[in-house]
């Protein structure tokens, strides 16, 4: 049963990833990317990495891709200009791709990267000890104790990026029309409404 689920979602993943780069409409490409993320999240769930799976869906699908979709929709991308020179670069592209593939095989197949060389990784044993408790619990356990200091620094980095983003983009323009709620609430009837006495026109008889 698990195998069946795996093959189904793996096939979906491969298919949607392929569609991301072949489909013409960028909005569709972004949606296929969402599908790809989603199916890889399911594969992670099968590996019992439930925390990573949830984070992938929440962060990538929920936040990053929605932003990405917004950007794609806002930009007026001209598809015909993007396809100019496709044939010209096709050969170079295939050549580079092939070279990367050969290099990957050469490196991964060489004696450097055999399992014995990398057996020192400590996480493998400690991960086995954790099988009883949940993934999230195990992560939180070290994140807020052993790794408290780097965790706090990461928080400061996020704060700095926020300060920087606001400092660089916020501009008070003279002509910007913003609301001041306090003023709106404090308004009196007399400020807005002026009763004007009009001479009643004596209707002609």
């Amino acid at each position: 049963m698990i195998k069946l689920i795996f093959y189904f979602f793996a096939a979906t993943l491969v298919f949607s990833s392929a569609r991301v780069i072949t489909v013409r409409n960028p909005v569709h490409a972004a949606l296929f990317l969402v599908l790809a993320f989603f199916s890889s999240a399911v594969i992670w769930l099968l590996l019992q990495a439930e925390f990573l799976a949830i984070v992938l869906v929440l962060v990538y699908v929920g936040a990053v891709m929605v932003l990405f979709l917004f950007v794609v929709m806002m930009l007026d991308i001209n598809l015909t200009t993007m396809r100019v020179g496709f044939a010209r670069y096709l050969f170079t592209g295939i050549l580079v791709g092939f070279l990367i593939l050969v290099e990957m095989f050469l490196v991964l197949d060489s004696s450097f990267f055999h399992k014995e060389g990398l057996a020192l990784l400590p996480s493998i044993e400690s991960a086995k000890n954790l099988e009883s408790s949940s993934n999230t619990f195990a992560l939180a356990q070290v994140l807020y104790t052993n790794y408290l200091y780097p965790f706090e620094i990461a928080a400061v980095i996020l704060l700095v990026s926020m300060v920087a983003a606001i400092a660089l983009t916020m501009r008070r323009r003279a002509y910007s029309r913003n609301q001041n709620p306090a003023q709106q609430v404090e308004i009196k009837r007399t400020d807005r409404v002026r009763l004007v006495k009009m001479p009643s026109s004596t209707s002609a008889d």
Binding site: I153, V163, A164, A167
Partner: peptide, 11 residues
């Protein structure tokens, strides 16, 4: 630490 320094400097 390096990232904290660099990010502040970029800004």
């Amino acid at each position: 630490g390096l990232e904290l320094l660099s990010l502040s400097l970029y800004a």
